[in-house]
Design a protein around this nucleic acid. Structure first.
Lengths: 190, 190, 190, 190
DNA sequence: CATGAATGAGTATTCATTCAT
DNA sequence: AATGAATGAATACTCATTCAT
């Protein structure tokens, strides 16, 4: 009713989301280095000064993008099944997502680097990653108890290895699926 | 008369190297996002417009930094010994270097991301990485022939897994050593 | 229903006064240079776009502030008594007011300067000042007739001297009282 | 030889002075409220970004203007003669300068107000004014010793009265001369 | 009356690059 | 080679004002 009255200004609250999405896309295309509020506004179809009505500062928009991006990754996590199977599916899902949606993981790597110099982002990203790490540890502990894990792999280092490999694999998306398949075979007993 | 007046301005040709080193350090600290020619010049102790006598454009300096950085990484590669041992030493050396010299690997990740949008850097970096990949493949093929490799690992995917894990591990330097140790145990037969 | 919900939004007509007072205070604190409608609105506890329901333009609000401020100063004038005494009391009152309420006189000086570039303000302020000047002239003429004035002081130049000194003294509020006391002794016969 | 090579860019070091003069003039015309670096640059005939080559920030330029302006006022002070005469000449010179060069004194009043909110300017201006105050006190003390001063005027309050009156008189330049003449007659014994 | 969203002209500042010396 | 002055396009952010609700 109120949206798309004359076709140009979409509406009120969803405008904020449109800005975050546009910023996410610009970040994927151009990196932090090339992230310009003007481009974000243009992509969202609004005047660039209107951005500041929704986000006081560029950093505030970036924080919203971090939230949006890490949340999107989080939805990746698998539901249920046997521990070995769940781990298998988790890695397979990640491998597929990296191949299908490479920008998401590229942006996540961009955020990892930016977080080194930005305490605010560091806090948010560390919290989200900690959630992933915890769920991996739980999964690996269950798999170990079920005797499905290769000997010598503790839940702790196993989780770190998975995190590192997923992150590194996301830098070369077309090879990610194969890499994560091999990792899975190395971790889980035949 | 004016050169080496107080020992500060090194000279003519090594001035170029000083600029590359300064740019590398700025890149490690601030990322591409925060790389300013003025800062680089200041760190090298010269006027910022003098940079253009050594590098026509900022991109030229960046290319030189890429060369400098990837070369530094390359020097990391191990010399000789048995194939399993050489692989072990390679991963151990990398793990140690990441812990000791984290900025080098952070800069390399920065370059990986930048290369996605910059064909010139992509070419250089891909060529250097291809060298690393080749030597890993050779190493893994030798290890496989010696029966030292876990079954199911081909030289191709094994090399990809190592590359991915090393890259991902470099994003959390303090955990890198443990991660690479585990990878090594998973790849090499006891 | 929505008005006076929590006692904060006063009502309809007095809202206008609240805005003028808030603007006066902002002007005292930050000068014309730092006068922002948003700040004024925030200080009055309303949305900044609501200001435009009371004052079509910023200038309109400024005009209202000028009226408010000059009126406040006007109330300063003394009632009655003998001419010399009335003059004495006038200067003493001014000196005290400057010390007690320095912002009022600082704002008046701000207005004097602004009036140089703003014909609308100039007209208003000149009219108000003319009233003060007239009453000073009348007072001085009466004092002269009563023989209470030092020789050589005409009502005209005497009034100008008083006006100039009061204005200048208001720039250093803590010394104003002493300055005006001395002026009084110089003008009035012992 | 180097200046006015093609007529447009005047030269190097005097460019700084040209900017200060231009800023002073803009300040006189538009006040702090209307002081724009773009206008200053345009008045000096250079690109507005070039300003930052000479003054890192707007505040730095303002500080230079304060220095320039207060220095100009200072040069107003009279040389020598008998104490009463020197005081007479000082007030007469000030009265004439205010009438001839009203913008200078308007800018000085602008600075007085700005100094209330700007500690950096406050320090500079207070120091300069203290110099004026001191010289006035010395002058009045000499005049008092010579018996040329009206009874009841101490060097301290006399100096304050002069300062206040000069400041206030500068707000209405065409009446300043008369006001200061009257002040002189009130202070100095016939 | 009141609001929140939107606008657009404007504001200081940044920065790679050019040029004369 | 080196420098300092100059440039101009770009950059985040501001602010009075408008408009639909």
């Amino acid at each position: 009713m109120s949206a798309a009255r004359r076709g140009r200004p979409p509406a009120g609250p969803e405008r904020r989301d449109a800005l975050v999405s546009a910023a996410y896309e610009r970040l994927a295309e151009a990196g932090f280095e090339g992230l310009r509020l003007r481009d974000v506004a243009a992509a969202a179809g609004i005047d660039h000064s209107t951005i500041h009505h929704h986000f006081a500062t560029k950093q505030d928009l970036v924080v919203a993008v971090v939230d949006h991006t890490t949340r999107q990754f989080w939805s990746t996590t698998p539901p249920d099944g046997g521990p070995a199977d769940r781990l298998r599916r988790h890695l397979a899902t990640l491998g597929r997502k990296i191949a299908e949606q490479p920008e998401l993981h590229v942006v996540l790597r961009e955020l990892d680097l930016r977080a080194r110099r930005d305490p605010e982002l560091r806090t948010i990203i560390a919290a989200r990653e900690e959630g992933w790490r915890d769920s991996l540890r739980t999964l690996l502990a269950a798999a170990a108890e079920a005797g499905a894990l290769v000997t010598g792999v503790t839940p702790d280092t196993g989780a770190e290895l998975i995190i590192a490999t997923v992150k590194g694999a996301s830098l070369t998306p077309d090879r990610a699926l194969n890499v994560l398949e091999l990792l899975e075979r190395l971790l889980i007993r035949a």
